[in-house]
Lab assay of single mutants.
Amino acid sequence: QTVQFNGLEYHFPNPEEAEKFAKKVAKELGGEVRVKDGRWQID
């Protein structure tokens, strides 16, 4: 599972970890999490 933001990609072994990370980062950055092409993106 991949999380993308600021032009970087973070890879996680399972979707739960990816989701948790994506939501944490979005909260800290005040961004929005969305899934695109099977990847988590933070904008």
Results as ranks from 00 to 15, higher is better:
W40R: 01
V33F: 08
F12P: 00
V3H: 01
P13S: 12
G31L: 15
E28F: 12
G38D: 05
A18G: 01
A22I: 05
Y10P: 00
A22Y: 04
G38F: 03
E9M: 13
R39E: 06
V3F: 06
Q41T: 14
V25W: 13
L8E: 09
G7M: 05
G30A: 06
A22M: 05
F5H: 06
V3A: 02
V33I: 11
Y10W: 12
F5W: 12
N14V: 03
F21V: 01
E32S: 13
Q4K: 10
K27W: 11
N6R: 12
L29Q: 07
V3C: 06
E32G: 06
V3S: 00
E19T: 03
L8Q: 13
K24C: 15
F21R: 00
G38P: 02
N14R: 05
F5M: 06
G7Y: 04
W40T: 03
T2P: 01
G38C: 13
P15E: 10
Q1E: 07
V25I: 14
Q4T: 14
E16C: 14
V25G: 01
K23I: 11
K23G: 04
E19H: 07
Q41N: 07
A22T: 02
P15Y: 13
Y10G: 00
N14I: 04
K27N: 09
E32D: 08
D37Y: 02
N14D: 08
E17Q: 08
G31V: 15
G30L: 05
E28C: 15
Q1W: 15
L29E: 05
V33H: 03
G30K: 07
A22C: 13
E9D: 08
H11Y: 12
F21C: 13
P15M: 10
G7N: 06
F21H: 00
T2Q: 05
F5C: 11
W40D: 02
V35P: 03
R39S: 07
W40A: 01
K20W: 11
R39N: 08
G38L: 03
V3M: 03
R39L: 12
A18I: 01
G38Q: 04
R34A: 08
E17S: 08
F12L: 03
G30P: 03
R34C: 15
L29F: 13
D43C: 15
G31A: 13
Y10T: 01
V3N: 00
E17P: 00
R39I: 15
Y10I: 08
Q41F: 15
H11R: 10
K27M: 12
E16G: 07
T2A: 06
L29S: 10
F5N: 01
F12Y: 01
G38S: 05
D43H: 14
L29W: 12
L29K: 05
V3Q: 01
G38H: 04
R39A: 09
A26E: 02
R34F: 14
D37F: 05
E9Q: 10
E17H: 04
K23C: 12
D37L: 05
E19V: 05
L29I: 13
A18E: 00
E9Y: 12
D43W: 15
G31N: 04
L29G: 05
L29A: 06
L8H: 12
E28R: 12
W40E: 02
A22K: 03
T2D: 03
I42L: 04
F12H: 00
F12Q: 00
V25F: 06
H11V: 10
Q4L: 15
G30Q: 06
R34Q: 09
K27V: 08
K20H: 08
N14W: 03
G30F: 06
Q1T: 14
A18Q: 01
F5P: 00
G31M: 14
E19K: 07
L29T: 13
Q1S: 14
E19F: 11
K24E: 09
